[in-house]
Every structure is written in structure tokens, then in C-alpha cells.
């Protein structure tokens, strides 16, 4: 295996929560991210999917240092980042940048585009004021906006254009890794495609590594090379893109895929649907065994209530396989042989 650019091992982020103690502390622990591992390579995109509250945004915020990991390791080119102080993290921050979900909230309304795009270089002491203006113009061109618009304010742009500015800002420091947290979910359908194409093109052009977080599975399928599925703070399945979408092996992944409405009336009406009952359990009091057990349509197939008692580990299906799954079920879907070709 080639050396990974970003290697995340057993990442945990717990928040104090629950009842307050006498001294103002909290009694409980909210395990937002509970042992997540993956790696990113240059020019590759890992899709991270899951429902709200599963911890995918917390993973993103921890990777860019907006939150400190409770434990685990984040290695960028072999350098350990987890546990670094804010100041010691700073030189690495320019190498991992983030694109945010809401293009209306993530740009300062009182700054001009020139100032928004020049600020990263200013903070990192990389360019003089004059150079920063040129840099801003170049960045606008890279993301497909008119470089003459650098003196405009965010409100003068539409949602899609603002998202392009957000992308330009993330590129300002020539990062190696881009964390994209729901970058298209606030956009209209006709604009979504423009931004997805732009992200795709930038990935090739600058051989960027993406962690692409989204709840829209069709978007993830389009842009990712491999996909990890999260449920309640843990990765339950991880696989190369087509294998995951064509032969999902975890019951949650299967339910998730079958729940996505297809924009084709004939397919949509003919397909088999797995409708899960109930809600995602509270991460404050997760079930003792497998977190998905209370909603799992196939839990009865595992003998001896094992799912209720033990938490399954994310394990490779075969020693050399890139498919990993956290489930006690036999691989009885029969498609597994096809997938390992």
C-alpha cells in the first residue's frame, strides 16, 4: 500500500454531557466519535456518509483542529497532529483546509472578496498586501468567477457563487487535504452539479485528497473513490465505491441505500424497500452491544443475542480485502464473491 497522506487511527471525540455535578462538571459522556480510522491518499476522495448526529461533522472539525481529539491519532505525512497545541498546529493547518456547508453563514458579510481570500495568506505570513490581491484574483479565476469582482461583498453573489468563494478560500494556502462538509447540500439542484464538477476538476488538477462528507448518497457515489458509512460515532462499513453501492454488506448500509428516493418513477415503484423502524438511539446512552441492533431488520439471524451484548469491530472481510464491515452476520448475501474479484 502506498503511504497515505492522512492517516487517522482510532479517533475519539467525547463531549461532557448529561446531568451537572456540584462542581459544574458533567456526569455523562457523549461519544460523538468513538474510534474512527481511515486514510486518505493524494488525488483520492473518501466519502463519509451517515445520518445527522452520527458524528461525521465532528470528525471533520477534529481533523482541522477546530476541536481537540479525546484520543487517537491524526498523522499528516507521518507527523502526529493530535495533541498539538493551537500554536504548534498552525503550520499544518494550511495543509488541511475545510469547505463549509452554508455559503451564507461561512463568509463574513463585512469583508470584500479580496479580503476574504487574502486573509489566509496574511495569517500565515505568506504574501505582502499587493501579492494578496493578485492571489485573490487568481483564486477567483481558478474557481470560475470573474477576477474583476474582488472588491464585491458576499451579498452581491448568489449561493452557488458564494460556495465558489468558500472553495477559493480553502485553496488559498495550497492545501493537500480538503475536508468538504456537506459542500452542496444548501444549493439548488441546478447549481449543485456545477459545484460538484468544480470540486472534481480541482481534485485532478491539484491532486488534492478529499474527505467528502454528505448525506446525499448519489452525490457521494459520483465524487468518491471509496466510502465509509458511519452510525452513532462508529464506521460500520467501508469499501471501494462501486462495491459499497452495488453490494452493501452491512444491514444499515442496505437500509440507507434503499431509503434514497430514485429520480425515476419506474425504478422507484418497482424496487424493494427496507423501511427501518424507530429512530437513531441517543449517543448519550448508546445500546450496550451493536449500536444498530435496536433497528436492525436482521438481528434475529445472529444466534444467542450476540448483537445485544457485544459491539462488533470493523474488520476486513479477507486479509487482503479493502472491504471492512462491523457486523456479526454471516456474509450470506452471496454477492461477496463477485465483489472480491
Amino acid at each position: 500500500m502506498s503511504a497515505a497522506l492522512l492517516e487517522v487511527t482510532n479517533l475519539k471525540k467525547h463531549f461532557p454531557a448529561g446531568e451537572t455535578t456540584v462542581l459544574g462538571g458533567r456526569k455523562g459522556r457523549l461519544r460523538a466519535v468513538d474510534g474512527v480510522s481511515f486514510s486518505l491518499e493524494a488525488g483520492q476522495c473518501l466519502g463519509l456518509v451517515g445520518e445527522s448526529g452520527c458524528g461525521k461533522s465532528t470528525v471533520a472539525r477534529t481533523l482541522v483542529g477546530l476541536q481537540r481529539a479525546t484520543s487517537g491519532s491524526i498523522k499528516l505525512d507521518g507527523q502526529e497532529l493530535a495533541g498539538l497545541s493551537q500554536r504548534h498546529w498552525l503550520p499544518y493547518r494550511r495543509r488541511i483546509q475545510m469547505i463549509f456547508q452554508d455559503p451564507y453563514a461561512s463568509l463574513d458579510p463585512r469583508q470584500t472578496v479580496a479580503s476574504i481570500l487574502g486573509e489566509p495568506a496574511k495569517i500565515h505570513g505568506l504574501a505582502k498586501p499587493r501579492e494578496r490581491k493578485l492571489l485573490a484574483m487568481r483564486l477567483l479565476e481558478v474557481v470560475g468567477l470573474n477576477p474583476r469582482h474582488i472588491n464585491r461583498y458576499p451579498h452581491e453573489f448568489s449561493g452557488g457563487q458564494r460556495q465558489r468563494i468558500g472553495i477559493a478560500r480553502a485553496l488559498a494556502l495550497e492545501p493537500q487535504v480538503l475536508i468538504c462538509d456537506e459542500p452542496v447540500s444548501a444549493l439548488d439542484v441546478s447549481i449543485q452539479a456545477q459545484i460538484i464538477n468544480l470540486l472534481d476538476e480541482l481534485k485532478e488538477r491539484f491532486s488534492l485528497a478529499y474527505l467528502f462528507i454528505a448525506h446525499d448518497l448519489a452525490v457521494v457515489r459520483h465524487i468518491s473513490d471509496s466510502v465509509a458509512v458511519m452510525y452513532l460515532g462508529k464506521v460500520v462499513e467501508q469499501a471501494p465505491r462501486d462495491e459499497l453501492f452495488e453490494a452493501p454488506l452491512h444491514p444499515y448500509t442496505r437500509a440507507l441505500l434503499s431509503a434514497v428516493p430514485l429520480p425515476d418513477p419506474e425504478q422507484e415503484r418497482a424496487r424493494e424497500r427496507i423501511v427501518l423502524s424507530g429512530d437513531v438511539p441517543s449517543p448519550l446512552s448508546p445500546p450496550p452491544g451493536c449500536a444498530f441492533e435496536p433497528r436492525c431488520p436482521r438481528r434475529a439471524e445472529v444466534p444467542g443475542d450476540r448483537c445485544k451484548r457485544e459491539s462488533p469491530q470493523l474488520e476486513a472481510l479477507a486479509p487482503s480485502s479493502s472491504r471492512r464491515r462491523a457486523c456479526f452476520l454471516e456474509n450470506s448475501w452471496g454477492k461477496i464473491q463477485d465483489c472480491q474479484k
Binding site: A193, Q194, R221, H222, L262, Q267
Partner: peptide
């Protein structure tokens, strides 16, 4: 312009130009 869940095409999406 909508990506499809059921195919793994890698072509760029056809988007509607403009705003």
C-alpha cells in the same frame, strides 16, 4: 444535472449554466 445512485459514471455532470 442530478447524480444517479444507480450508475457509477465518472463523466462530469451536465449542469445548467448560469445562476
Amino acid at each position: 444535472s442530478i447524480p444517479r445512485l444507480s450508475t457509477s459514471e465518472v463523466e462530469p455532470l451536465k449542469s445548467i449554466a448560469g445562476q
